[in-house]
Amino acid sequence: MARAGLTAERITRAAADLADEIGFDNVTMSALAKKFGVKDASLYSHVRNLQELRARVTMLAAAEKTELIAAAVAGRAGRDALAAFAHAWRDYALQHPGRYTATQTPVAPGLVEADPGAVRGIELTYGMLRAYGLTEPDLTDAVRLLRSTFHGYAALEATGGFSHSRDTEASWARIIDALHVTLEQWPSSTEKDAT
């Protein structure tokens, strides 16, 4: 019989908290069972295996990050929306390092499409970029630029990768300014194809 009080949702949230404490890659069923004071087998009544648990944490974290970004960009456009989006992304990455790592982890095919939070995150990103007048394939290229920039900056900052005396907040603000200018002046792929 399953241990009273354990549910898949409660286990997933505990795993996400544990990921923030010890790192997403260090979360195991045994470490989680210790947190609950139960044997590993008690968890398997609610979650099939470690792979499913990690996928659940990934989807939970993606939904949390999306909600923060959605609240930040609501009613904004252009540079204001871009800055709000960037700040929410970075804040989540720095405040929830284990969860953030989970958001960068691929999940099994079909899970993203079935998860409304993940779909909303994609739609939110593309919607913010459409205010710059971008269409495909430029939209996808711009998404990749933003994701690479936000992820790279947050990852370097989290590991102490910026040793220069320049204030990281000042650099971050300049990066957002540069991204805004880049997005406003994005060269259309159709123009490039014509040359």
Rank of each mutant, 00 (worst) to 15 (best):
D20M: 08
E52W: 13
G23F: 08
E123M: 06
R174T: 11
I22H: 12
W172L: 13
G117Y: 13
D40G: 07
T101D: 14
E191R: 10
A154H: 11
G117W: 01
M59I: 05
L156W: 10
Q185D: 12
G78Y: 01
L139R: 00
V73R: 04
D40R: 15
T125Q: 09
K35Y: 02
A16P: 00
A63G: 13
H164T: 12
R166W: 13
E169W: 09
T182M: 11
L53H: 10
A142L: 03
V107H: 12
I69A: 04
R76S: 08
R90V: 07
R144A: 14
R3C: 14
I122W: 08
H87R: 14
R166Y: 13
H96W: 00
F150E: 10
L53F: 04
A178K: 07
A178P: 02
A41V: 15
L183E: 04
L50E: 15
G78T: 09
L146A: 02
D177N: 07
R54V: 03
R3P: 06
G160M: 10
A63W: 01
V38H: 06
A19L: 03
D25Q: 15
W186M: 05
S163P: 03
E191V: 07
G121S: 09
P137G: 06
D193P: 00
A178Y: 08
Y153D: 01
E52N: 10
V143Q: 09
G152L: 14
G152A: 14
S30T: 14
E123P: 03
A84D: 04
R56W: 09
D193Y: 00
A72T: 01
T103Y: 05
G78E: 01
A71G: 15
A114H: 03
R79W: 00
R3G: 11
